[in-house]
């Protein structure tokens, strides 16, 4: 289990992360979302023990991560720009990984060759960006880590490869309870595979929840009434956003859907539709509440 307790981090005078509290259970896939510059990569680097926090604790299996070799050889951090030694071939790089990671499996490496279909004698720097990322995944999967930290992992991969990578991740989670932390701007990508989500904004963790709970707590409601919308009803509902399209009103409502829908129905609306939100919409509305609104910019 990973525990982040009241963590602060600043670089020079700029505070990047403040008061981050987070727990990630073993065998869970945690999706880390956030606006640009929110501090996602910094948080990942702290969890990976590459940076040292100014205050607070970061524990993996109850032990501090920073400078802890024993823990570090049990996880892999796949950075947003994969790093390889200059002029190394895939084979040489695999040998290096085998030396560093006790859990590295030759067998797995060879099995995965069918997936990646690359020549082991190729120099990595000659490969394209997307293929280099594939190599990084190949090495990471072969090292059989207990924890896999992925920073924008699917950038540069084609749709077929994305699907394959996700599938292998899921197999490892199902088979050996690997824990995964994945950061991305691509909400759809995170939504597909995560069970828990954290939204980071300006160095603060706005939301950390089970994805299904998050989705069942906010809904899009379309209502039409004969005449105007009863103002009494509006006061009772926790409305985050509203819009009117002709006679149809669109509301984004927080709360338990069963409760508020029977409440709305008691006002006998002509039309009543309830839709769950996509993660993208949740992200936009949650951020909007914190003043990070989408505005149509006219130039």
């Amino acid at each position: 289990m990973i525990e982040v307790k009241k963590v602060y981090k600043s670089f020079q005078n700029a505070t990047v992360l403040s008061n981050i509290d987070l727990q990630i259970e073993k065998g869970s896939i945690f999706g880390l979302l956030g606006s640009n510059g929110a501090g996602k990569t910094t948080l990942l680097k702290l969890i990976a023990g590459l940076y040292k926090q100014d205050r607070g604790d970061i524990l993996i299996d109850k032990k501090p991560v920073f400078e802890n070799e024993d823990i570090k050889q049990r996880f892999i951090f796949l950075t947003d720009i994969p790093y390889f030694f200059p002029h190394y071939t895939i084979k040489q790089m695999a040998n290096f990984y085998e030396n560093i990671y006790p859990s590295f499996s030759r067998e797995r490496f060879q099995t995965l060759q069918d997936v990646f279909d690359l020549d082991l004698k190729q120099k990595i720097y000659r490969l394209s960006k997307g293929v280099q990322r594939q190599v990084a995944f190949w090495l990471a999967f072969s090292a059989m880590p207990e924890l896999l930290i992925l920073d924008e992992p699917f950038d540069g991969l084609d749709p077929v490869m994305r699907k394959k990578m996700k599938n292998i991740i899921i197999q490892d989670v199902a088979a050996r309870e690997m824990t995964v932390i994945v950061s991305s701007h691509n909400l759809q990508e995170v939504e597909d595979i995560s069970d828990h989500i954290g939204i980071l904004h300006k160095g603060e963790l706005l939301i950390k929840r089970n994805l299904d709970d998050l989705k069942s707590n906010i809904h899009k409601v379309q209502i039409a009434f004969q005449g105007s919308v009863p103002s009494e009803m509006l006061q009772q509902l926790q409305i985050v956003y509203q819009e009117q399209r002709g006679s149809v009103h669109l509301f984004i409502v927080k709360g338990n859907a069963d409760e508020f829908s029977s409440y709305i129905k008691s006002f006998k609306p002509l039309l009543f539709d309830l839709l769950p939100l996509t993660l993208e919409e949740i992200f936009i509305y949650e951020m909007g509440e914190k003043g990070y609104a989408i505005e149509n910019i006219l130039i």
Binding site: G27, S28, K166, N167, I170, Q171, V173, A174, D195
Partner: peptide, 12 residues
């Protein structure tokens, strides 16, 4: 486990 792999859906 099997279903997770077949559908590429989180086992949880």
């Amino acid at each position: 486990r099997v279903l997770a792999q077949q559908l590429t859906v989180n086992p949880n």
